[in-house]
Simulated assay, not measured.
Amino acid sequence: MGYYKQNYYCRSSHRIQKRLRRLPTDSGGPTNVLPLRKSHHAAFDPELFTIGRNYRLHVSPDSETDSDLLEQTIVDRTGESVPQLYGNVAPTYLRQHNDSLGWLTN
């Protein structure tokens, strides 16, 4: 298994819809969790990239990075599918998160 597949989703997790963090019983369950490593989490929060309803990577047109890791695992893979998310992250939560992004036309 390549570096991308082994390390893209690990170490920490991120709730897609932040307002659901208030009550653990109303968190949306495990399908509202996007597992991310620390550097990807730091890029997801300021909306530098997202995952579309079709489970493809989308990068903000205003996104810039000096990180080789983010360049290789996000920017260079824009438009690629992330099959590990199929059935694990609900498209409903992705849509709710992405509806607030002015740059995503998906």
Rank of each mutant, 00 (worst) to 15 (best):
P30Q: 05
L85Q: 07
F49G: 10
H40N: 10
V59D: 02
Y9V: 06
D26N: 09
H58G: 14
D68W: 09
Y86C: 05
K18H: 07
D76Q: 13
D66S: 12
L69V: 12
T25P: 03
K18R: 13
R37H: 12
R53W: 03
Q6L: 11
E47N: 15
N98R: 01
T50Y: 00
E64S: 12
D68I: 13
R77G: 01
P24W: 05
S60W: 00
R21E: 11
Y55A: 08
L94G: 00
V75L: 08
R22E: 03
L101T: 01
I51N: 03
I16M: 15
Y86M: 05
P35G: 06
R22L: 08
H40F: 14
R37T: 11
G102D: 09
T25E: 08
N88H: 10
P61Y: 07
S39K: 08
S60I: 03
T65G: 03
A43L: 07
T25Y: 04
E71Q: 15
L85P: 00
L104P: 01
S67C: 13
V89Y: 05
H40R: 09
Q6E: 15
E64T: 15
P30Y: 07
A90M: 07
Q17C: 13
L104I: 14
G79V: 03
P61E: 05
H14M: 12
G102R: 13
T50M: 08
T92K: 15
R95Q: 14
N98L: 00
L20V: 06
D26E: 14
N106G: 15
V75K: 08
Y4D: 07
G87M: 01
N88C: 06
S81C: 14
R11L: 13
L70D: 04
D45A: 09
N54R: 12
D66E: 12
V59F: 02
K5M: 06
R22P: 00
Y9P: 09
D45M: 03
R11Y: 11
L85G: 02
K38Q: 10
K5H: 11
I16L: 15
I51G: 05
R19G: 02
W103Q: 04
I74T: 11
D99N: 12
Q96N: 04
P30T: 06
L36M: 04
E80D: 10
H58F: 13
Y86V: 13
Y3E: 13
D68E: 15
